[in-house]
Design a protein around this nucleic acid. Sequence first.
RNA 1: GGGAGCGUUCCCGAGCGGCCAAAGGGGGCAGACUGUAAAUCUGUUGUCACUGACUUCGGUGGUCCGAAUCCACCCGCUCCCA
Length: 412
Amino acid sequence: MVNKMSLFKEFIDRGLLAQCTDPETLEKLLDSERVTFYIGFDPTADSLHVGHFLQLKIMAHMQRAGHRPIALLGGGTGMIGDPSGKSDMRRMLSKETIAHNIECFKQQMSRFIDISEGKALFVNNAEWLYNLNYIDFLRDIGPYFSVNRMLAAECYKARLETGLTFLEFNYMLLQSYDFYRLYNDYNCKVQLGGDDQWSNIIGGVELIRRKDGGEAYGMTFKLLTTSEGKKMGKTEKGAVWLDKEKTPPYDFFQYWRNIADADVINCLKMLTFLPLDEIAKYESLRGSELNAAKELLAFELTRLVHGEDEAQKALDAARAIFADGGISDDMPTCTLTAGDFADGKISVIDMLVAAKLAPSKGEARRLIQQGGVIVCDEKVTSLDAALTADDFVSRDVIVKKGKKTFMRYTLA
RNA sequence: GGGAGCGUUCCCGAGCGGCCAAAGGGGGCAGACUGUAAAUCUGUUGUCACUGACUUCGGUGGUCCGAAUCCACCCGCUCCCA
């Protein structure tokens, strides 16, 4: 094991650790043995998002320190839906959707963790959950859970106000059983997860102890939240995805580049692998100097998720656009076709809609009326403004929506 | 099974049979100020062929010149009793 610094301490120093069972023993265990651990991922969408990224980054941390990760895919638990910390019931997913999502997850995950030669495992809990016998399960596992305790769990608090179905109430038992199975079948001793998983993780640790007298551990990590306590990685348009089709690298980069001052340092610590002493240099920055830290954060994360090339392109594009007011080949581009033109012309309104800078023509109109649209450095003042096909031939047409959304138009 | 309610635009939430595309708040977007930050102030926030038309208030039918508002049934949810 080649870690100069205790992995456990690093988690603390990076502000990642939220809660854990038996810290002393766990720290010793992680420093002295090659440990198999797991994190569960429920396949709720066809791409991972930023929240998952933190989990994967932790997995990678652990793997680099010599431990063996199991990525547990929730083919079974995904059928139920984890109610922890949620205020509404999740939409039920079909088996087909779940299977598809799992494949997408696996693909993306293999970029962050090394799955060669059994260094990491993918396990699907459908393997044991699909064929459970209800009565056997109740008799085997049921006695170890107290409904009183479960109801008192923090994670159900919100749901006790709005309603919690028995379907979802069972989730904790299933996740606990997962841990129990992994403990027995794979000698998996530690479960990691987001802090919202604490109750579920404890459930498994307790089950293993009470049923088999086994020693297992749980550790949770801080959730990615802003300094105001809001969930990070969400935008008006939805989650920030790791799939570049769903969130293009440039947008991904911009999300981090625009992070609030108060959050940059935490994000650097939590999300990147940059050494802490290097991050410390940025900690003393104040005011606009923090932009350097934001750029670093955006670059690093884009690099980790989309690779060096994409990160460099995004950085170059951002610099060209914002600093030089210039043009970059890598900036977001919308390609217009002949069909977009009527009588050789296209209105600015149609251009905005075509590039999805505005979801509707009404919105596009509003943007223009409010002075939020700039075409080739000139503010658009008329709703009737239009460009001819020739305008696109002689030069690059750059449209600016608001202060920081840029779009380049080309002809097909 | 019995009883009482509820279901409104992205979210919360108000809504007299006509003056409702629907108050207010949140969020979003744009403008000013800035550092591609935060805070603050202003405007805006269903769609389109935009001084007019069209679609929307859980679903389906009905009453009425006219319904988000009334009636019937259905679906979903909450609460009390069993």
